[in-house]
Design a protein around this nucleic acid. Structure first.
Lengths: 228, 228
DNA sequence: TCAAAAGTGTTGACCCTACACCCATGG
DNA sequence: CCATGGGTGTAGGGTCAACACTTTTGA
């Protein structure tokens, strides 16, 4: 396209991804080893520049796919980071996106990026303002997990109530009463109980459930408001 | 700064402002008549391009100031709009900001922009994706007004409880019980009752109150959570 | 004197929290 | 047989919604 708005500076636009995962009891963050200047070799969120023919959402999906091979992942904008000097090389504004990833044996990370999971309780130093991005994303995650059933995006399709509770405890860094929690969750009537148990974390085993998206959509139509 | 990230397209970055006001019973939006191509002469949100030496927050403040002469106004990012073809001239990504403005006799709008207030219930057609921006901002406003005491930004410093209730009714398009509303608001203990009445909307007159920011900050420290 | 908005209390239903014991099983 | 985590019920307090009449005063 021709330039019809003269005398205005065009700017580099990037997307940086805050990739959350959940593993046993820990909320985790996937970070990569930066392979180019500046700050080469340091820990960094995975990111990339926005191309001419893609929206920011598309750019975020592309970047996520290159690292993880995953598509159709829950992903959402957090906010824009636009301080003039935030990138030491050239002015770049960056839009932070967070994504919720199921960590499991099928997840194959591209070796290219030297990616590694870190516990949110024990993050390494990150370049630029990436630490602020992570904070902002975590704040948004807390908000969202409270008011929308996105926690399930971090768990296997078949999940147990104790697992879900441990996830919320990790997100909020706060213990929850197991009786009250399971009553509240089951009362919403969004989980389908299966005739299987998961014995990976106890001898007795915990019943498996499946989040029923259709039932949730029905509830929404009736004015139901999710809240944990 | 030199270009250190080669082969990447730089992009025009704009800010568009969703300016909310409140007048009697109506939530209002300030829109301008666009004075340049494309779409010259049509109704548009006020906006502008981001300059080299400013953050997006700064750009939004600058644009607001040029139109209204106001500073220190509540203003917050909504989200980025980045569809490739959203601007018909040249690819532009735009970050929507919303602001809350007190409409009163001191407000002097720059004549340059042909600005006009419209009721949110009766908006004109807007250019590009500006209507979507307004929807997104309204959604965020509903969210914020419920969980933070930002409603006061739309009202005079001295306000009455019925006025505040009408504001919330306008934001949520829903009637509220006046007894329950005033009990809830006063119970929060954030309003200082004055010995004056406002008779502009009734013969009996309603007591004026002042929102006490310091008291609110104290409450926050004690773990108080605002919710309407 | 009347119309129009302000102000004010109570009750019942529901919801949320706090809390303790038994169950199933693998080792 | 025992250690570990899973599963379950109840009672009390607090919160929220629903509801109607009186007050004030300008016109």
């Amino acid at each position: 396209m021709a330039r019809h708005y003269p005398h205005t500076k065009r700017i580099l636009v990037a997307v940086d991804c805050i990739l959350f995962g959940f593993d046993q009891n820990d909320l985790k963050l996937l970070v990569t080893k930066r392979s180019f200047s500046p700050e080469k070799g340091k820990w960094s969120l995975i990111g990339g520049f926005v191309e001419e023919d893609e929206s920011l959402d598309d750019a975020a999906k592309r970047i996520l796919f290159k690292l993880t091979g995953l598509r159709n992942i829950f992903m959402e904008e957090v906010k824009v980071f636009s301080e003039v000097a935030r990138d030491s090389m050239e002015r770049t504004i960056s839009v932070a996106y967070y994504a919720l990833i199921k960590i499991n044996e099928n997840l194959k990370l591209s070796a290219e990026y030297g990616a590694q999971w870190f516990s949110m309780n024990d993050l390494p130093d990150l370049i630029f303002d990436h630490r602020n991005m992570v904070e902002a994303a975590h704040t948004k995650l807390k908000w969202m997990a409270k008011h929308q059933p996105i926690g399930f995006e971090l768990l296997p399709k078949k999940l147990t109530i104790p697992q879900l509770r441990r996830l919320y405890e990790a997100i909020y860094k706060k213990e929850l009463d197991k009786r009250n929690f399971s009553r509240k969750i089951l009362a919403m009537n969004m989980l389908e109980k299966l005739n299987e148990k998961d014995k990976s974390s106890s001898k007795k085993g915990a019943y498996l459930y499946r989040f029923d998206k259709n039932r949730y959509r029905e509830l929404l139509k009736k004015g139901f408001i999710f809240e944990v």
